[in-house]
Simulated scan of single mutants.
Amino acid sequence: MRSAIAIVPSAPVLVPELMGSAAAELTDLRAAVVAAAQTLPARWVVVGVGDADAVIGSESAGTFAGYGVDVAVALGPGCPQAPTELPLSALVAGWIRGQANPEAAAEVRMYADSHTADAAQAHGRRLRALIDDAADPVGVLVVADGAHTLTASAPGGYDPESGAIQSALDDALAVGDAAALLRLPEWIVGRVAYQVLAGLTEPGPAGARELYRGAPYGVGYFAGVWHP
């Protein structure tokens, strides 16, 4: 059965060890992300975006070594596996799990960034059916970024039109406007994950709560909770 849905960024900057002396700059974001994840029950399904569709089980473990520091994470408690190469969304989910609920088990579902809005929405509907068939409560962690072109130093450079799009995305996530997510432009980094969320919750959640919105380093980050 469906439980809460936490929406968080797919941001390695959440991990203090990767940020060094700049870690304190993101204290508010980090606290909001952990608070959102703490609303979830002990069983998680993580929605992320990658190069291809994939399912990663809760027995998996990984490391942020590729991002500069060997910070180990796991998707489940007592994970027996040695770290393997995991996509960023899975690594971030593993780190959040360790901070918010180390006893939780997280299955990661990656969706290809090439999916159209209709295809992503259909994936969300299928995921909802799977979750609704579960006997125990299942929480969803949506790991996704917004625009990456919000300042001159942003990873994607600066696009003056992206600020308005990011504001509209933040507003949609803050109020639970699932339909608005289906109209996102393709250059929104986490577009497919947000559109899976739209299919998962259509016509929309019963309630939504914003915990954070901002654009540190020129990337749009949102943290919040939707209730089905």
Rank of each mutant, 00 (worst) to 15 (best):
A215K: 01
L197Y: 05
V189Q: 00
G218Y: 03
V175Y: 08
P205H: 07
A61N: 06
L130H: 09
G68V: 05
R109G: 11
A74P: 03
P77N: 10
P203H: 10
R30D: 09
S162I: 02
A11R: 02
T149C: 15
D113Q: 10
A193V: 01
P80M: 04
V225Y: 01
L130Y: 08
A152H: 13
S3Q: 01
T84R: 14
E25A: 15
G207D: 12
H148L: 10
A129D: 14
P228T: 07
P80C: 02
A117S: 15
A147M: 14
D133H: 06
L86T: 02
G218D: 04
G48D: 01
A180F: 11
A104S: 08
V73P: 02
A37L: 04
Q195T: 07
A122N: 02
S3V: 01
V92K: 03
V143M: 09
P83G: 11
G176Q: 01
I56C: 00
G176A: 00
E210A: 15
M1G: 15
V142T: 04
S60N: 09
L141A: 06
Y221Q: 09
P137Y: 00
V175P: 02
V71T: 09
G68C: 05
A35C: 10
V225A: 03
D28L: 14
A32F: 09
S3K: 00
L130N: 07
G204R: 10
L211F: 08
A174S: 15
A120Y: 06
L29D: 07
A208R: 07
A152K: 12
P41T: 04
Q166P: 10
A31M: 06
S3D: 05
L184C: 05
S162L: 05
Q121N: 15
V225P: 00
S162E: 11
Y111I: 04
P80H: 03
E85W: 09
R209W: 07
G156Y: 08
Y158D: 14
L127H: 04
Y221C: 08
Q195Y: 05
M1I: 14
L40S: 11
V175N: 04
V196Q: 03
M110L: 15
L200K: 07
L91R: 10
A54S: 14
T149Y: 12
L150K: 07
D133P: 01
C79V: 08
D113L: 05
D133G: 10
A22G: 05
G156H: 09
V175T: 15
Q121M: 15
V47Q: 06
V189S: 03
A74R: 14
Q38A: 12
E202S: 14
E103M: 14
A147L: 10
L88V: 13
A134D: 11
A32T: 09
R183M: 00
L182F: 13
T39N: 08
L127I: 04
G157C: 11
V138I: 14
Y212M: 02
Q166V: 11
V46H: 02
L141I: 11
R126M: 09
A154G: 08
G50L: 04
Y194V: 01
